[in-house]
């Protein structure tokens, strides 16, 4: 299958988060079938780093994010955060870790409770964890709202539906940073926004990262966005990792045929360059209910051979800090 193995992981003592052999499957009714959402993936993030997780819908990138947060439970593997395996934690122990991990969601409107006021939404984490006294909490809310470019005076007493999508996403970011987390998982934070607003939010995330010393996992389907924000990019396909590398390296010289196909399919805002699907991959992503044997990408891969159906490629180093799971890397 496109990509098992741990060759791309760095020493575990350096990593803030280290995912090893993560498997997430969802049963489909009582049919006995399973959605293989995430199948044996390993990833790590160093403190202060931004890991970009990119792939098309159904590749398991959002599930990975939620499995890290323990919002969906994994069937196998470990998620070590600061050395503690989160998958082993239950109930109260797990809850105690929560303030250090935060999440920003795709739909800025749906991720804010329509019946609560902006100030209360941002304060929620501080209230839950009883961080500081009343004044300290209010001061913190004011600080983070200002940091994300929302006027705490006028916006504080309002409800989310009075704001635009971009502003709601700013409020979500304020909520995420209020408890001073170490790691924020951004699940498609800009894909529901207009291009002009998208740029504002991306810049804001970068600024927040520097200001609060955050580590980010940035999940998106837009390769250009991921390239812009990431220090390291992992490309996923059908629950597997295809390729891991630094963004500039990955985009300049993709080694996995899927990465190359993805890159060539992006429509560039330049009339001289045509996105050509003929060079890329035909067909569509197979059903995660019954993923192909061997390399999961083989059904759409222009370079597929016999071995790809039989043997799952392991992740291996093909260049300095450039890893790929393919029998025939480009």
């Amino acid at each position: 299958m496109a990509g098992s193995g741990t060759a791309h992981l760095r020493p575990s003592e350096e990593a803030l988060l280290r995912i090893e052999g993560l498997v997430v499957e969802f049963p489909v009714g009582r049919s006995g079938l399973k959605v293989h959402a995430v199948s044996d993936i390993s990833l790590d993030v160093l403190p202060g780093e931004t890991l970009g997780l990119v792939g098309e819908s159904g590749c398991g990138k959002s599930t990975t994010g939620r499995a890290v947060m323990q919002l969906v439970r994994s069937q196998a593997g470990s998620v070590a955060f600061e050395g503690h395996d989160l998958t082993k934690l239950k109930g109260e122990e797990l809850r105690q870790v929560r303030p250090k991990l935060q999440m920003i969601f795709q739909d800025p409107i749906s991720s804010l409770n329509p019946r609560r006021r902006v100030r209360d939404i941002v304060r929620e984490g501080l209230d839950i964890w009883k961080i500081g006294d009343e004044d300290a909490r209010n001061a913190k809310v004011t600080e983070v709202l200002e940091a994300v470019g929302i006027d705490p005076e006028t916006a504080g007493p309002r409800r989310p539906h009075e704001f635009s999508g971009g502003q709601c996403q700013r409020i979500s970011i304020a909520r995420a940073v209020a408890t001073e987390p170490k790691l924020i998982i951004c699940d498609e934070p800009v894909s529901a926004l207009d291009v002009s607003v998208q740029a504002q939010i991306i810049n804001l995330l970068q600024e927040m990262k520097d200001r609060y010393g955050l580590t980010l996992i940035f999940i998106a389907h837009d390769l250009a966005v991921v390239k812009n924000v990431s220090d390291r990019v992992a490309v996923m396909y059908l629950g597997k990792i295809c390729e891991v590398a630094g963004p500039d390296e990955l985009y300049a010289a993709p080694r996995h045929p899927y990465t190359a196909a993805l890159l060539s399919a992006i429509p560039l805002p330049d009339p001289a360059v045509r996105a050509k699907s003929t060079e890329g991959v035909g067909g569509e992503i197979p059903s995660p209910l019954a993923p192909p044997s061997g390399c999961r990408f083989r059904t759409r891969c222009p370079a597929a051979a016999e071995v790809c159906a039989q043997e799952e490629p392991q992740i291996r180093e093909v260049g300095p800090d450039h890893f790929v799971a393919c029998h025939f890397p480009l």
């Binding site: 740029a199 970068q206 812009n228 990431s230």
Partner: peptide, 17 residues
């Protein structure tokens, strides 16, 4: 405001305010 594939990573995007 569109992130460019050709631009190095972490280039600042020109958002429309």
């Amino acid at each position: 405001s569109i992130p460019k594939l050709s631009a190095p990573s972490h280039s600042l995007l020109q958002a429309i305010g």
